[in-house]
């Protein structure tokens, strides 16, 4: 099963390699990984998506917590959460398909961010499944290049009733 884990870390050199080293050294899988500074410049937030049995995910969160530079580990899947990923796609756009590509981009509420005679570069954000959907639709037309950010996720605020 897919799990999204959010990790707050000291924003210092070498900390990311402690995290990735832990995953590779213990044979845990990384599906995607995304890291950037938080509001506090001394702290960064890392979102890692992994796949595994619950016992493996439990080990991953414990092992992450054990790292001295890790401040907090949250398994986002335990909560109601919002996840987003961004993708940049360069799609073949020749005379016959230019209009079709634009229509698809429009339906997915994407943006064209670069245009050339033979291609469009498209920006799209959404859940992992939405990103996958546009990829599936544009693939027959011809995707020349794809760059994905990996997932970032945030638990929804607790609702008061």
């Amino acid at each position: 099963m897919k799990h999204t884990i959010s990790v707050l870390l000291q924003n210092k050199p070498g900390v990311l390699s402690r995290v990735t080293g832990l995953f590779s050294g213990r044979g845990f899988n990384i599906e995607s990984l995304c890291v950037a500074e938080t509001l506090d410049p001394n702290v960064s937030c890392l979102t890692v998506v992994s796949r595994g049995e619950d016992t493996i995910i439990e080990q991953i969160t414990k092992q992450l917590n054990k790292l001295i530079d890790v401040i907090k580990v949250t398994e986002i899947n335990d909560k109601d959460f919002v996840e987003r990923e961004m993708v940049l796609l360069r799609v073949k756009a020749e005379a016959a398909t230019r209009a079709e590509v634009l229509r698809v981009v429009d339906i997915f509420r994407g943006k064209v961010v670069d245009v050339s005679a033979k291609s469009y570069a498209i920006e799209l954000t959404g859940s992992a499944s939405k990103i996958q959907a546009i990829i599936d639709i544009l693939r027959p037309i011809g995707i020349k290049e794809i760059i994905r950010t990996g997932i970032i996720a945030m638990p929804r605020a607790t609702k008061t009733k």
Binding site: G14, S17, R18, G21, L22, G25, I68
Partner: peptide, 11 residues
């Protein structure tokens, strides 16, 4: 050496 010993030190 910090890189080399990362997996075999506590910190």
């Amino acid at each position: 050496i910090v890189g080399i010993t990362r997996p075999c030190t506590k910190h």
